[in-house]
């Protein structure tokens, strides 16, 4: 968590190798991400899912084609296997009725859910969520947060979520870290975070509420 410009999304982009750190290192599953070759990085990313702030669906592909894309491009599966997997993940995010729709025909919340299905379809071990509640009304934001929690519990994946919403963090987090100006302020389990003595924690929570 952290205010805008704290460097939250930048951390996610370092974890998945979209950015290289100016200094220091990033270790994921025992590998130093900045030192990976392009092929090794592709291999690492196969174990990771990423939900973009604005879903980043490919506009000219239907819901089905968007979710099937990583399978068609990176896995050797038969069309029927792809069909089964895509339908399964779309059911998980409750979008099974909109297979043939295009992103422009979907609301922001629905696009997020399709983006989530696309992130899940390759069975990732780690999922990164970049402000899943951004641009959604409070009701839809809560619904997406609950879905993230449910998927985490059902699929047993490690999830790292970037948010500036305390309501979202309360729904989905086991541990919370607060960032400011590119630096870690504090990090603790959800309950302990509330009573963290650092002055920025109470200030941030006050503003967030």
């Amino acid at each position: 968590m952290g205010p805008s410009g704290a460097g939250k999304s930048v951390i996610l982009k370092h974890i998945i190798g979209l950015l290289k750190p100016d200094a220091g290192d990033v270790w994921v599953q025992g590998k130093s991400v900045p030192d990976l070759t392009p092929d090794e990085l592709r291999g690492l990313r196969r174990n990771m899912g990423y939900l973009f702030q604005h879903a980043a669906l490919i506009n000219w592909l239907s819901v089905f084609e968007n979710v099937a894309l990583p399978l068609k491009e990176t896995r050797e599966l038969s069309p029927s296997q792809i069909q089964d997997k895509v339908e399964h993940v779309l059911k998980l995010v409750r979008m099974e009725g909109d297979l043939q729709k295009y992103p422009a025909e979907l609301s922001g919340g629905m696009q997020k859910r399709v983006g989530l299905a696309r992130a899940l379809v390759t069975d990732p071990r780690i999922i990164l969520y970049d402000e899943p509640e951004a641009g959604l009304d409070p009701e839809m934001s809560t619904s997406v947060s609950r879905m993230i929690r449910r998927l985490r519990d059902e699929l047993h994946t490690t999830s790292i979520t970037v948010t500036h919403s305390w309501a979202c963090a309360q729904l989905i987090a086991d541990r919370v870290a607060l960032f400011e100006k590119g630096a870690l302020v504090t990090e603790a389990p959800l309950d302990a975070f509330l009573s963290d003595p650092h002055p920025r924690v109470s200030e941030f929570l006050g503003q967030s509420k």
Binding site: I16, L18, R42, R45, R46, M48, Y50, F52, Q53, H54, A56, L57, I58, N59, L69, P70, E73, T74, R118, T122
Partner: peptide
Amino acid sequence: QEEITALDVLSV
């Protein structure tokens, strides 16, 4: 709109 980045992340 980050669609190119998304393709990159999906190893496309």
